Computed example of a mutant assay.
Amino acid sequence: MNATVPNLLTGARLVAVPVVLWLLVADAGENGSLRVWALLVFLLAAATDYWDGYLARRWEVVSPFGKLADPIADKALVLFTLAGIVAVDGIPWWPLAVLAVREIGVTVGRLAVARDAVIPASRGGKLKTVLQLLALTAYLIPHPAAWIDAVAWWSLLAAVAVAVATGIHYSITIARVARAHGANPPPATPASAADDLPPHDGPR
Rank of each mutant, 00 (worst) to 15 (best):
I72C: 09
R35I: 06
L134F: 05
R123C: 00
V20T: 08
V86K: 08
L157Q: 13
K75V: 07
A47D: 15
G11D: 10
V61Q: 07
A158L: 15
I85T: 05
A97T: 14
P6A: 02
P198T: 00
G109R: 10
L8N: 06
L133C: 08
L79R: 12
S33M: 15
L23M: 09
A28H: 14
A178K: 14
A188G: 11
N31K: 06
Y170E: 02
P142F: 00
L14F: 03
V113D: 06
V5F: 12
V20E: 07
P187S: 04
A26Y: 02
G109D: 09
A117K: 15
G202I: 11
V164A: 09
V17M: 07
I168A: 10
L96M: 13
A121L: 00
G66V: 07
D27H: 00
Y139K: 03
W37R: 12
I172D: 03
V25P: 00
V160T: 11
A158T: 13
K67W: 01
L44N: 14
A135G: 02
D27P: 07
Y139P: 05
A193I: 14
D89S: 13
P6N: 03
A100N: 05
F42H: 04
V5L: 15
P144E: 07
G202V: 13
L21W: 14
A152R: 01
W147S: 01
L9V: 09
G66R: 12
L79F: 08
T10N: 01
V106Y: 04
P64S: 11
L23W: 03
A76T: 14
G124R: 14
G124Y: 10
A76N: 11
A194G: 13
N184H: 15
A45C: 12
W93F: 05
A114N: 06
L96R: 10
P71C: 00
V164I: 15
D49F: 03
L156T: 04
L156C: 02
A193H: 15
K75E: 07
A87Q: 15
A193L: 15
A69P: 05
A146C: 07
T189Y: 05
I141R: 06
V19L: 12
P186H: 11
L14M: 10
W51E: 11
G66I: 11
W51L: 15
